[in-house]
Amino acid sequence: MGEQQNGGGTSGRRRAHPDGLVLGHVSGRASGPNVALDDAALEALLSAAVLRGHRADAEGEQRAVAAFRAARAAGAHRARTRRRDDWRPREPRRLALSVKTTLSLFVASLALGGVAVAAIGSSGTSDAPDGGDKVRPTPSAGASGRPAADPSAALPGATAGKPGHPSTAQDAEAKCRAYDQVEGSGKALDSTAWQRLVTLAGGEDKVAAYCAEQLARAAKTVPTKKADEGAATGNGQGPSGKNASGEGAGEGAGAGAGEGESAGEGAGKPDKAEKKD
């Protein structure tokens, strides 16, 4: 391997260093372009150089063996192993590592568990009582400025501070759309979600009518399911959208109520806007 590297930043940690030039020289000669072998070549060289000078000393060996015999005779070899005498593969270290890992996993599970519990809480409160609330389950608006379309008012306090959860209106719409597709096809309608829909509609035979009404209303107020804020303002209901963002910012129920009043009939929009927050 007569070739020499110039070491000019080819690869590896060494090359990042200005001194890589010389090292590359050394290793290039000894071990080719592989940076990982740089150390190995140098180490082999040093090792060979140091050990080459060793000459067997029979005298030292005899002394050591004599000491071994004496210790064996004295029973010293039955002595207890101290911590510093235990050089078995690193169990304690691995154990310590695993303890650390376990601990962090535990902490992570706590955090995730908290999120899950919070999610459960929010869905429980906004889903159940909001029955026919097609357009806005937001607490403050529900408390005051609720249009007539919201007969089953949400509890203002209970749902406060849970933006981001799909409104019941959307739930109902979604279920209705799905209902169109699965109606009459087996046990899908036995599930809890369908039972809830049936309850909302006021009976199994009224689901179709209920859904037709829901979908028609949705089509009227919201052009698309996934209406974003841009769509909301484009719908000519800018003011209510602004109000909605104000509520989404986490104001108390009282303040939200006032804004809800001013929002008036633009009920559908605040909900959408808040969702995006």
Binding site: A64, V65, A67, F68, A70, A71, A76, H77, R78, A79, R80, T81, R82, D85, D86, W87, R88
Partner: peptide
């Protein structure tokens, strides 16, 4: 030589 019995390992 004295403590060899205490040693544990390869």
């Amino acid at each position: 030589a004295r403590d060899l019995g205490r040693f544990k390992g390869d």
